[in-house]
Design a protein around this nucleic acid. Structure first.
Lengths: 229, 229
DNA sequence: TAGTATGGATAGCGGCACTGTCCACTATCC
DNA sequence: GGATAGTGGACAGTGCCGCTATCCATACTA
C-alpha cells in the first residue's frame, strides 16, 4: 500500500501522515525506490491509534511520540506502561511555588493514599494533579466539595479494577504487543468514556431531583423559569 | 481595589486581566474617573474561577465566557446549568459523516441509556461523546474493552449522586448564586479529581497484580526486565 | 513635581497541529 | 511512449489561541 491508499483508508490527509512520520509518531514506509515506499497494515493500525490519542485523548503530538516509544519498547511491563501512560496523560502544571492551599491539599492527598492503602504511588504525578484539583476547590471557595472524595475514590478503585481485568483478559489471548496497546487505549479512551457517562448520569439524576418535565437545551440561551420548561 | 492589587492577589498578570475583560469573562471595574476603576471581591472570586476553569478544566476562553454567562443569568435552574456545563465541557467533535463504527456505537449508547433507565438524556451531547469513544475502541481494534461499560456506568451513577448531594448540601445554606457556581466547579474540578484518582488506583492495582517491587519511573526511559526493577 | 500606575486600544508573539508548495522522480493508463 | 497522476522529502506558511508588549493621555502617590 502506498501513502495515498493509507490516507484513503484512515481519512488522514497525506501531508498529515508525512507530518506524523516527521514527528516520529509513525515509522516511515519501506522504501522500494528513492521516492516510493510501501506501508502495511501495521501502519494503518498505528495511524488509527494516533488519531484516537489525538482526538479522544487530547494528547499532544509530542506526548504521543513518547507513549508510542513506550509501546514499541520491547522490554516493558504492563505496570511500567501504565506508569508512562499516567505520567503523560495527567495534566502537568508548570510548578509555581506552592501556596497554602496547595500545601494543605498535598497533605490531604497523602492522607487519602494511606487511608486507602494505595501502594507504589509515592512519586506519581497523579498525586500532584489531585492536589492541584483540591487546592483549586479551596481557592475558589468550594472546599466543601471534598465531601465527595471518598465516593470518588471508591468508584475509581472499581473502575481501575475493571480496567485491569480487561487488560488481563486481552493478555490471555493476545501477544504482549496488543496488551501494552490496550493499556494505553484503556487509559485514554476509558477516561473519555467515563467522562461522558458521568455527564449522562448528572443529567439523569438532576432530572429526577429537580423536575421531570425539565430539559436542558443546547447552550446559554437564558431566561425562563426556575425548574420547568 | 485597583487592577494592580487584583493582579497581586490572584497572581494573574495585569494585561491578562485586561484581556479577560475584553473577552467578556470578567466584568469591567467600576469607573471612578476616565482612567481609574475599582474592583471588588466579586472580581477576585470570578478571576479565580476563570483560572480554575482554564487550568484545571482545560476549557477554552470562549467556552468559559458562555459558562459564566449562564452563571450570571438570573433565571436558570440547577438542572439547566448542569446541562449547559455538560454541553460546554463535553468534547465537541467536528461531525464528519458517520462511519459504520460510529453507527454501531450510537446504538450501543441508546441501549445502555434505556437499560439504565436514564431520563431526559436524549439530545445530550455526552451521548455522542460516548459514542465517539466506543467507535474509537472499535476502530483501533479494542472493542473488547467495552466489557467495562457496566462497571463504568455504575461508578458514574454513584459519582453523580455524590456530586448532586454536594450541590444540594451547599444550596441548603447558600444563595442560589453560589449553588450554580458549585455545579460548574463540581463538574469541572470533579472531573480532574476523578481522573487523578483513577490513575492512582491504576498504579495501585497494577502494583498489586504485577509485582510488589515494581515502580514506575518518570517516562519512557525504556529497557529493563519485565516486572522487576 | 517626579515617578509610577491605570484604562483603553491595537499590534505582536509563541506554541501547535497541520497545510501548501516545490522538486525530481515513478507508476499507471491509454 | 507519452500524458497524467501520485510519491518521498524538504521547508515555508497558516490559522487558532492565550496571552504579552507597546502606546497614550490621564491620575494617583511619594
Amino acid at each position: 500500500m502506498r501513502i495515498g491508499e493509507l490516507s484513503r483508508r484512515t481519512g488522514v490527509p497525506v501531508p498529515t501522515i508525512k507530518y506524523y512520520v516527521r514527528e516520529g509518531l509513525l515509522p516511515a514506509g519501506q522504501l522500494t525506490s528513492p521516492n516510493q515506499a510501501a506501508y502495511g497494515e501495521a501502519h494503518e493500525r498505528r495511524l488509527r491509534l494516533i488519531r484516537a490519542l489525538l482526538d479522544v485523548g487530547g494528547l499532544k503530538v509530542a506526548a504521543i511520540a513518547e507513549v508510542l516509544a513506550a509501546v514499541d519498547d520491547p522490554a516493558k511491563s504492563i505496570h511500567k506502561v501504565l506508569g508512562v501512560a499516567s505520567d503523560l496523560l495527567v495534566p502537568r502544571y508548570p510548578a509555581a511555588e506552592p501556596d497554602e492551599a496547595l500545601l494543605a491539599a498535598r497533605e490531604q492527598v497523602d492522607e487519602l493514599v494511606t487511608q486507602r492503602g494505595w501502594q507504589d504511588v509515592h512519586d506519581c504525578p497523579a498525586k500532584e494533579s489531585l492536589a492541584m484539583a483540591l487546592a483549586t476547590l479551596r481557592r475558589v471557595g468550594h472546599e466543601d466539595f471534598v465531601q465527595v472524595l471518598d465516593v470518588y475514590a471508591e468508584a475509581a478503585e472499581e473502575v481501575a479494577r475493571a480496567d485491569l481485568e480487561a487488560v488481563a483478559a486481552r493478555s490471555a489471548r493476545s501477544a504482549l504487543d496488543g496488551v501494552v496497546e490496550s493499556v494505553i487505549v484503556g487509559t485514554v479512551v476509558g477516561e473519555a468514556m467515563f467522562s461522558a457517562l458521568r455527564h449522562l448520569a448528572h443529567v439523569d439524576r438532576s432530572s429526577r431531583m429537580y423536575g421531570e418535565a425539565a430539559s436542558h437545551g443546547q447552550a446559554a440561551a437564558g431566561g425562563d423559569g426556575e425548574i420547568t420548561r
